[in-house]
Amino acid sequence: MMLFQFLLILIMLIGAIAVCVFRTLINAVVAMALVSLIASILFYYLQAPDVAMAEASVGAALTTAIFVIAIRKTKKRDDKG
């Protein structure tokens, strides 16, 4: 069980590095959704299901949708850094 938590933390770390490395904004948002997903699983593992539910609602749905809408409504300057 403990090893599986380490695996989840490792996956979350790789996802967080991917958020920093990706040059396109929509790819970074997708990677951020994965990080939020794994964070919710870790909260659930630590026996805090209400915190996990709040993290899933805010992180997976609300933040992703708002970021996508913001990317859509702004100019495409993301490839020039």
């Binding site: 929509i26 948002v29 997708v30 959704a33 997903l37 919710s40 659930y44 299901p49 996990a52 539910m53 899933a56 609602s57 997976a60 749905a61 992703t64 949708a65 996508v68 809408i69």
Partner: peptide, 18 residues
């Protein structure tokens, strides 16, 4: 089990947005 229900619905919303 309720957490997994909420989780499935909300991740679907994120997937639909993307």
């Amino acid at each position: 089990l309720d957490v997994s229900l909420v989780y499935a619905v909300l991740t679907f919303i994120g997937a639909v947005a993307i």
